[in-house]
Simulated scan of single mutants.
Amino acid sequence: MASVAVTLLGRDRAAFLPDVVWRSDGGEYARIDRHTDHAAWRDAADADCPLVTQWDDGADENSAGKPTCSLSLPTAVRRMLDACDIRPGQRVLEVGTGCGYTAALLKDRVGPEGSVTSVEVDPVLAAAARERLDAAGVAVDVVRGDGLKGWETSAPYDRVHVTCGIRRLPSAWLRQCPDGVLVLPWGSSHEGRDNRLVTLTVSDGVAVGPIGASLWFMEARSQRPVPWGEWPDTGAVTKAELPVSWREIDAAVTDADRFVLGLLLPGTRLWASGHTDDEDGRVAWLERAGEYASVGFGWSVPTTVAGDGRLAEDFARAVRWWHDHDRPPADGFGLRVTPDGEFACEEVWFGSPDAPVRLR
């Protein structure tokens, strides 16, 4: 079959694949070795599918742990590159080199007069990507370092292209690309790998842009979700008078809408137990900056609150806001991002950058 990567992106990704990859078509990962099954390996390279190339940051050579490096779905790569709107002659910073394939695609677009600096935190991945790019004759400056700090040496940049899931956007990217475009998979604190394509136009160091389509990307290593751990004692459970009904809470914490709750409750993690028809009710568990709260609700139980009262109130206000605005999906929102210390200040807007979300 024709290579999807070549058709969509203009370059074969086989040259950037290691000899062993893992492919999943919705089930278990299948290990594919180039030397023992070249036809399957070649088919995987040509297909519109993600391919895992590393597990557990390189500590495990099997698929029993956590995937930590991959070649992304070619259609998703194309979507991000189109959003980045790269022009010949531009200077591009890539965060997350991985196997080096996207770095090569970026260089194809900036041409001989442009430059690509790609920063990779993993020294083994950085070295392998550099070798593959050199073998392919692609002039990319691969740097071993923390991509969340950017790379000041080659700044300023016209574009920043990020290949890992981001929860908190570093101020360094805005300072190093003060007038350009940032494209990244961004997610709220609620969801693990439920990222959205965010395209930010930067002017005088301030970035503004809409929240776009869903993307599946591995998180930046320093921003991976922390396990919940043991739930602390949040004290007595009390009957609550909240500005929302149990049905409204139930609708808001379904999987389809929790991303929006993450936008309305920045820095807050949410996990909901049970199902709508559970006779014993459900519980929304909340954590923010070391404070915990729980809200119990359901068709046959009273609505109750335990733990931090302000956190529970903010959760109820977010649910109320969502319903009062006709339960909007994520693509009605956007971000306004300004430098502020190590990490930028991320303000969520709805409908227009001039309409920041205010719950209080």
Results as ranks from 00 to 15, higher is better:
L184D: 00
V260F: 01
D158V: 02
W271D: 14
Y101I: 03
E230H: 14
C49H: 13
T97P: 07
Q54R: 12
P243K: 05
L184W: 04
V124L: 13
A15Q: 11
A135I: 03
V181N: 04
M1L: 14
D340M: 06
W216P: 02
G351F: 04
E94K: 04
A39V: 12
A47H: 08
E342C: 08
D46N: 15
D233H: 07
A129N: 09
T53W: 10
R78D: 14
R11F: 06
C345I: 02
C345P: 00
L73H: 13
A306W: 00
V319A: 04
V206Y: 02
W299Y: 14
L263M: 08
C69Q: 14
D331C: 10
D82Y: 02
V116K: 02
V92I: 09
A76N: 08
M1H: 14
S70V: 02
T75H: 11
S171A: 04
L215S: 09
D257I: 01
N62I: 08
L182D: 04
W285C: 13
P18A: 06
G281E: 03
M80L: 05
L73Y: 10
D308I: 05
G290S: 08
R258L: 14
E131K: 14
A14D: 12
V140Q: 09
G187N: 08
W186R: 05
N195E: 11
I32M: 09
V121D: 07
P123H: 12
G309T: 11
F315L: 05
P232E: 06
F16N: 01
A207R: 00
R175E: 15
L197T: 09
P123C: 11
S115K: 11
A76M: 14
A126C: 12
E219V: 04
V301A: 12
M80P: 03
S189E: 15
R130K: 14
E347C: 12
D48E: 11
W246M: 01
T268F: 01
A129D: 10
V138T: 15
